[in-house]
Design a protein around this nucleic acid. Structure first.
Lengths: 121, 121
DNA sequence: CTTGCCTCTGACGTCAACGTCAGGTCCTAG
DNA sequence: CTAGGACCTGACGTTGACGTCAGAGGCAAG
């Protein structure tokens, strides 16, 4: 696949893909003329990278985790990092859940004070 | 409370509190000499702000939501925003859950390949 | 009164993940 | 063969949430 196709399929910009390559997160073959050629699996790879970004990981973090993803093997140190990141995600989910609860409470109270929002009472 | 106390209690920097004030997220009384004085409730307020930041909201977003928190009332437009943000958090939790599942899977596979990590089999 | 820590107001620095622009190349349809 | 997308490599710009430094004042203790 060409870079534009991958970008469209993964829902990111072309620039982002070049940036991922720059950071060592995504390799690409090169056509004789120097254009990047990606395997179809790159789309999923990009999705995963985005998920990790969304989890608050940096490029450097992702770079440290990707070898395990790629090879299916991990050193004990890498395993520790994986577990650490997983637990970090758990903490984030917990925090988000609390934030969500607070918002939901505000919404509930708001409905009491502004009930006429389409409810034909 | 003085700014340093609030910062310590809320686990953020003094600079952050001044920044919140700059953004209109956190008001403070002033002592005659110009020093900021916060009510004890400021600590919780800061926690909430941090939660919303963690949920990916910007200062501007938070600024738009805070009136409802403060007054307990909301216009329909603000209710819509609240609901929108709550749903955004839901989407984020879903994404994080997927990311967590992928990491957990990698960890599981890793354990197969590197089982001797303290398991005295 | 002075020592030492806290606080104040600017104001510039930082860092990540890209956006964007410039100037040039490639390639495919007509 | 030529027009016009898609692609290339730099390289500087952007944004948000602060960090950090400078220079000046405030305040409880001894």
């Amino acid at each position: 696949m060409r870079i534009g196709e991958v970008a469209a399929a993964a829902g990111v910009s072309v620039r982002a893909l070049r940036y991922y390559e720059e950071q060592g997160l995504l390799e690409a073959e090169r056509s004789p003329s120097g254009q990047r050629r990606y395997p179809a699996s790159a789309v999923d790879r990009v999705h995963f990278i985005q998920q990790l970004y969304a989890a608050g990981l940096t490029s450097k973090d992702v770079l440290e985790l990707l070898p395990c993803v790629h090879t299916g093997r991990a050193t004990p140190a890498m395993m520790a990092r994986l577990v650490e990141q997983r637990d970090g995600i758990d903490r984030q989910i917990a925090e988000l859940t609390r934030a969500r609860a607070r918002l939901a409470e505000i919404i509930r109270i708001g409905h009491e004070h502004v009930p006429a929002v389409g409810a034909a009472s």
